[in-house]
């Protein structure tokens, strides 16, 4: 028996919105520890990893580890039937063919339940090394979204350069080129969540496809902060912490000079 209850049901809506344009089908693994999901996009250029700790749920029970093969677009359709303030409960049997979703309005006046058919999904599970990155940038998620959106109008590839002073996002295309530099905030600058912080061992420059960075920014509503982890010649990690429950991380392979 698997049962997971989230008072803030809108969180689940936001999580699926953040993944479903990148990944069509995925296995969500449920265990005593919580929910995890790892999936690649169709072109196998990026990887999305979701982690929701059991402690972040208001009620969590998982007697036996199970894997839920989900069509994320269809799950998104069902979650659209939940109100933004609804409490959402997920339920499945030990050898499930369906996932039951129950939505309760805050005053308990409306209770609905839906069953989503599960699928058998063959996926390759990739081992992600626990790496120390040369640069870690923490910045407002809305700022990152704006930069990616703005630069995507000009070209396809973004050069991200991280130095102690700041992070430079550069693009060039047929119409011209552009750069946006965000500088490290000084300690006195306003709110923690509005700050740009850079931890750097050595400067890093890497090229990435803006199309994928754009997919990742669908996670912006999940939190005020995004973290970018970079080392030379390896995928960037774009990590969105989800307050109190876990995180969603996207890995994107760089474009490398031939």
């Amino acid at each position: 028996m698997f049962e997971a209850r989230l008072t803030e049901g809108s969180l689940l809506k936001k999580i699926i919105e953040a993944i479903k344009d990148l990944v069509q089908e995925a296995n969500v693994d449920c265990s005593e520890e919580g929910l995890t999901m790892q999936a690649m996009d169709a072109s196998h250029v990026s990887l999305c990893s979701l982690n929701m700790r059991h402690g972040g749920f208001d009620h969590y029970r998982c007697d036996r580890s199970i894997s839920l093969g989900l069509n994320l677009a269809n799950l998104g359709k069902i979650l659209k039937c939940a109100g933004n303030d609804d409490v959402v409960t997920l339920k499945a049997e030990d050898e499930p063919d369906t996932l039951t979703l129950m939505f309760e309005s805050p005053n308990q006046e409306r209770i609905s339940d839906f069953e989503l058919k599960l699928m058998d999904i063959e996926t390759e599970h990739l081992g992600i090394p626990n790496e120390e990155y040369k640069c870690t940038i923490s910045m407002p998620s809305g700022e990152f979204q704006r930069i990616v959106r703005d630069l995507a109008v000009i070209g396809e590839t973004c050069i991200i350069t991280c130095t102690k002073e700041g992070v430079k996002f550069s693009v060039s295309g047929d119409l011209g080129n552009g750069n946006v530099t965000v500088r490290q905030s000084s300690a006195a600058d306003g709110d923690e969540k509005d700050q740009v912080k850079i931890q750097m061992e050595e400067p890093v420059t890497l090229n990435f496809a803006l199309r994928y960075l754009g997919f990742f920014t669908k996670a912006t509503p999940l939190g005020s902060t995004v973290k970018l982890h970079m080392s030379p010649d390896v995928p960037i990690v774009v990590e969105y912490p989800i307050d109190g429950i876990g995180s969603i991380s996207y890995f994107l392979a760089p474009k490398i000079d031939e």
Binding site: H44, V45, E124, H125, P235, A253, K255, D257, E258
Partner: peptide, 14 residues
Amino acid sequence: RNKQRKIMVFFSSC
């Protein structure tokens, strides 16, 4: 020219 790498090049199957 820049060539887009695949993610599997960096992470091994497990």
